[in-house]
Design a protein around this nucleic acid. Structure first.
Length: 486
RNA sequence: GGCGUCAUGGCCGAGUGGCUAGGCAGGGCUCUGCAAAAGCUCCCACAGCAGUUCGAAUCUGCUUGACGCCUCCA
């Protein structure tokens, strides 16, 4: 099995991956809060982990990939209203209608981007009982306290024996000094404390019964409970966006420690932000672009529509831990590179083998693995894939050659990395009219051929230029004319 | 204010103490009726200032700038 190194946010180091249980990987990724459409920035994080999931599967691990749906509603501020209920009131819908609507949207979007579904996709509302039990355990262990029907985690007490800040590299004393004074009416003993259970006011729509009265679970508890339930007290990988590192993931560690006395996660992986115009994409600021807008081209920041696979390629060209800035120029450039890659992939199916090989396919294949083994370095992998693009074209020109065995290896490796691991798709516009379109274009190619034989350049160029205007690129080669659709 | 990350060629983006990814755009050549496509090739960058070193863009310090977190956030 390939030796994989990954960057652990807990230690800030690249470490060799050694699973808790040999041959198995338990991976938990914080999913979306389903109160509005996912934007491209949300998608980036999930896509990074989709690629990581795919790579683990390819390496032969048995992976249980858990990605939750947050449908219980997190608090937005110190008011008692949470996101889900807020939106529900706005649209005159039941909270679960909102949840259903945006969960469906989430799934549809990810499907278009060719995501593999997670092994388990648990919901917060489906685990209220488990959350209540966890709170009882934490209370019993003396690390939480109840005030007026709410239960808070006692961060200072926890910090006496454990390190609150172990992940985000924060010092609790600094945090105390620098906490903003939001209001004076909080029930918390200390501003650092966070809610495990929050009392629901009468007008609060999402509400459940509990030993502390009617209320709803706190911000961070669901992930602790669900990851423990499905992956165990100690599991391999926990992922999420960089912006969740603090406080969300820090609180998860504290809760798990308080419940199970175990540091729950071996490797913390954090994907970096997708920015637009140099600023983080966020639902709240309006600085974002929706996947549907990418697919339709209907957004002021882009000049045309892009396929999901082009957007995926654009994101895979950057490392998951780097900030990536979205712009029209950047995705246009990515689209051209993507097209060139896909055309070479198609061509690779047609090129023929020779008696001898002039290229080192096995060494190249190993370089592809080395790229992925180095903290899932997809941009380096793509650089290597473009080396193969060059090879395929040279073989096609008769300037290099491969034996049947090497050619099969090349094709297999491309298939593996381009489609299985990066999750790209070569989108053929195979609608009902594709045969007709092909027939039409072939007819025009014939007519142009005739015109060229008659030296009727005006006609032949007209055919060529009108077709390119329609997005049909004619390619004159030694063996005749072919075409590609843009 | 505190904590942290990052500053790479026209653009996007990797990476390493010396051998200097890749994509896009641009120049030249091959091919072509002219082109396009494809191939070859050129353009050798690492914010600024000091320091460590035989040697740094890569290590250290400072400066400047950007971003992220500290409040829901992928």
């Amino acid at each position: 099995m390939q030796k994989l190194f990954l960057y652990n946010s807990l230690t800030n180091k690249k470490e060799p991956f050694e699973p808790v249980k040999e041959g198995y990987v338990g991976m938990y990724v914080c999913g979306p809060t389903v109160y509005s459409n996912v934007h491209l920035g949300n998608v980036r994080t999930f896509m990074s982990f989709d690629m990581i999931y795919r790579y683990f599967l390819h390496l032969g691990y048995k992976v249980r990939y858990v990605r939750n749906i947050t449908d219980a509603g997190h608090l937005t501020d110190d008011s008692e209203e949470d996101k889900i209920s807020k939106k529900a009131r706005l649209e005159q819908l039941e909270p679960m209608e909102i949840v259903q609507k945006y969960t469906t949207d989430f799934h549809e979007i990810l499907q278009k981007f060719n995501f593999l579904p997670p092994s388990i996709e648990p919901t917060a509302t489906g685990h209220i009982l488990e959350q209540i039990e966890a709170i009882e355990t934490i209370l019993k262990n003396g690390l939480a306290y109840e005030v007026n029907g709410s239960v808070y985690f006692d961060v200072l007490k926890y910090n006496e024996k454990e390190h609150y800040g172990i992940l985000s590299k924060r010092n609790i004393d600094d945090a105390i000094e620098n906490t903003r004074n939001l209001d004076g009416q909080s029930d918390k003993k200390n501003p650092q404390d966070f809610a495990l259970w929050k009392k629901a006011d009468p007008e609060h729509i999402q509400r459940w019964n509990s030993p502390w009265g009617i209320g709803f679970p706190g911000w961070h508890l669901e992930c602790t409970v669900m990851s423990t339930k499905y992956l165990g007290e100690k599991f391999d990988i926990h992922g999420g966006g960089m912006d969740l590192k603090f406080p969300h993931h820090e609180c998860e560690i504290a809760q798990a420690q308080a419940c199970n006395h175990v540091n729950p996660v071996k490797y913390w992986l954090h994907g970096n932000m997708l920015t637009m115009n140099g600023k983080k994409m966020a639902k709240s600021t309006g600085n974002n672009i929706l996947p549907e807008e990418i697919f339709s081209g209907k957004n002021a920041n882009i000049s045309k529509a892009f396929t999901p696979s082009v957007a995926r390629f654009f994101m895979m060209q950057a490392h998951y831990r780097s900030i990536l800035d979205f712009s029209n120029d950047a995705i246009l450039a990515a689209e051209k590179g993507y097209n060139r890659l896909m055309e070479a992939v198609e061509l690779s199916k047609k090129i023929e083998s020779s008696e001898t090989s002039t290229l080192e396919v096995e060494a190249w294949r190993q370089k592809c693995y080395e790229a992925m083994n180095d903290d899932f370095n997809s941009p380096i992998l793509i650089a290597h894939l473009f080396e193969a693009v060059k090879w395929i074209n040279l073989i096609n020109d008769g300037k290099e050659s491969l034996t049947q065995g090497d050619l099969d290896l090349l094709r297999d490796t491309i298939q593996t990395f381009v489609f299985d691991i990066l999750g790209l798709e070569n989108v053929h516009k195979h609608d009902d009219n594709s045969d007709r379109l092909d027939g039409l274009v072939q007819l025009l190619i014939e007519m142009r051929k005739k015109a060229r034989e008659d030296r009727d350049w005006a006609l032949s160029d007209q055919i060529r230029d009108k077709l390119i205007a329609l997005g049909i690129q004619l390619k004159d080669g030694k063996e005749g004319t072919t075409y590609s659709l843009n």
